[in-house]
Design a protein around this nucleic acid. Structure first.
Lengths: 361, 361
DNA sequence: GAGCGTTCTGAAAACGTTTAGATTCCCTCT
DNA sequence: AGAGGGAATCTAAACGTTTTCAGAACGCTC
């Protein structure tokens, strides 16, 4: 029982075209080609140190036998697997499923395998997932993680990591241009004459929300500098699902804003639903702007005015960043060093309209 | 440089709580617990032949060191991988992202890894994906595959396969109760007085659509037997995305039906959008029923009456079927042998109402 | 024709795990 | 007290690959 255990069952005197029953290993190819397994490995890896004639013979033998390298064995010895993990907070959130789709496409195009894990928007779950994933994946894409900075840095230290919608010193990341998006959205509402606008925020732990709030503040300041008065009413922080939007809607009504900027489309969806329920006409009595442009946004009645974030492209871009031979970033480069910011664009639809005069309810 | 290579850097005199820098292997745990690696392996595998006291010590050591088994190594020796692949037509379709979510949760709960692949509703792409996946996964869940029966059988011959929304002799499968769902939907519309109803079908290659059509025919026959006349107008076959619904809406209007049964919610979404655009009031002038109950269905205005298919549970059930030691099915058992049919339920919302009298347009 | 570099190939060690078979230990039974 | 038998544990082989190092074959220069 030596290493050549599988020999007898693989080859018999029938010749090359005989398809082996069991799994073909590198040893079988080596025997077929009359070389050692080391040479097979090198020939198939395209190493330059193998003679062209030999390489050809090896390749032919491999093809004839239908050899497929065993990924587990390869991974074990190289330490580097051929899969990349994607960790997302919620697969049912259409924004993230789009990200997942883009990511998965690109990964597969690169001949790799996409492993996916949903954390249910839960920190503990995320930690668990990360621990499990860390062992069999050395390349990770983390979409909007809840994890603490230190945990992420530890992770990034031993795996290649790309973040989506979060930035962290020394870790490459892809995000949408949050500040610009919110600026465009606010500009649109101002142009429509709204002066009292609610902001329905995402979770306090959300990096995107922080960015969008900062962008909002900046945009408001800029407006003031131009002599345009506007009041932003902070409606609070909501879970980024449709359910969160319900509460936000009630708040928007009682705060007497004429328009609401929602942290994301999911929230806006809930808002729209609750406003309809309460008999508040959109956009006549209340304008609503979302963020993300999830696929349903344009199908709603009224179709949702929202900031288009190229979710699929974000996923793909994250993969590119991950696979590019980017040298490990040095923390001293600052957070922006490896940040890829994708442009976003306001898509005006039916959910926004000119502000009516102040209303009493 | 022996097998215990990582020893020095892992343990120092600080004690148990010290988190190791490098990767913790079974050797480290063995040293920590004062046993051999074989015992560690057995203890963690839950083998009965290890003394409870020892097992406890090992588990504690493993936890203290944060040990996670190396999957590549395990897979190499056992031959059986610990990932299961999920092939879905479109991640952006909320129904399938729900399936994916349920599947992924269950897979991870079992300590396995979920590999995901999106085929973009494309046969060629699907074939490609399957070939790629087959090399590193021996357990697959195929959601609504387009592939030919023969290809699927070949695949099922060498991997464990569970189908979702399709049935095939000898291959275990999970589906919703399509016929019953459509029966409920039709019954609801009949109860509301509709007598001329459109059916907006899915792709002709879709197994689900075939089932639903069959169920519809049966339900219509049953109604006729009870003396209730109803005319079903086949509006055609549409791509199962919202875009398909637009065309279906125009057809529904020109065919003067008072209600439409849509193959799925995506289609219904498009329908609703287009009807609103054309000024046809839902549900006053036209009732619409969907299928699937995707998360947005209840958030639409009007909220969509639809057949609730437990998508997440389907994903989970498929995993259960896959992991259960189900003996390979024998084709002679017939297609139903390993079919797990999940009950579905009509959820009445605002998109359906009593039929108005016949209208002219 | 000896010495020496080049170019190619092979032997063998590693990767971290599972598992078969050997070994130890401690009872219990005679 | 010695043998026999289980239970618990250990030793070592195996999984299929990559890669280091050493060696073989060859051609060149002097």
């Amino acid at each position: 029982m030596s290493g050549a255990r599988s020999g007898s069952r693989v080859r018999d005197r029938e010749g090359v075209e005989r398809v082996p029953e069991g799994v073909v290993t590198i040893h079988d190819v080596a025997r077929e080609a009359g070389v050692s397994i080391a040479t097979v490995s090198r020939a198939l890896a395209g190493s330059a140190t193998v003679a062209p004639a030999t390489a050809g013979r090896v390749r032919r033998a491999a093809a004839a036998l239908g050899y497929e390298p065993n990924r587990a064995a390869r991974q074990l010895v190289t330490g580097r697997g051929q899969s990349v993990g994607l960790v997302i907070p919620d697969l049912e959130n259409p924004f993230y499923s789009s990200v997942a789709k883009g990511m998965q496409n690109r990964v597969r195009a690169a001949g790799l395998t996409a492993i996916i894990a949903d954390t249910d928007e839960d920190v503990a779950r995320e930690r668990e997932v990360l621990a499990q994933l860390a062992t069999d994946v050395d390349r990770l894409i983390l979409a909007s993680p809840r994890a603490a900075d230190t945990d992420l840095l530890a992770l990034a230290a031993r795996s290649r990591v790309v973040l989506i919608n979060r930035s962290l010193a020394g870790v490459p990341a892809v995000t949408g241009d949050n500040a610009d998006g919110i600026r465009q959205a606010l500009g649109h509402l101002l142009a429509l004459g709204h002066t009292r606008i609610g902001y329905a925020g995402g979770p306090v732990t959300s990096w995107s929300d922080a960015e969008r709030r900062a962008g909002l503040t900046a945009a408001v300041d800029a407006a003031h500098d131009q002599g345009r008065g506007v009041t932003i009413v902070d409606l609070g922080a909501f879970r980024p699902g449709p359910a969160g939007g319900l509460a936000a809607a009630d708040l928007a009504i009682s705060e007497r804003v004429s328009a609401v900027l929602a942290f994301n489309d999911q929230l806006a969806l809930g808002l729209l639903g609750r406003l309809a329920e309460r008999g508040v006409a959109v956009p006549e009595a209340m304008s609503v702007v979302g963020f993300d442009d999830v696929p349903v946004a344009r199908l709603l009645a009224p179709a949702l005015t929202t900031v288009v974030v190229p979710a699929q492209r974000m996923g793909a871009a994250a993969v590119d960043l991950l696979l590019a031979g980017t040298p490990a970033a040095r923390p001293e480069d600052g957070p922006g060093a490896l940040l890829r910011v994708l442009p976003v664009e306001l898509q005006v639809r039916r959910s926004t309209a000119q502000a009516a005069g102040r209303r009493e309810r």
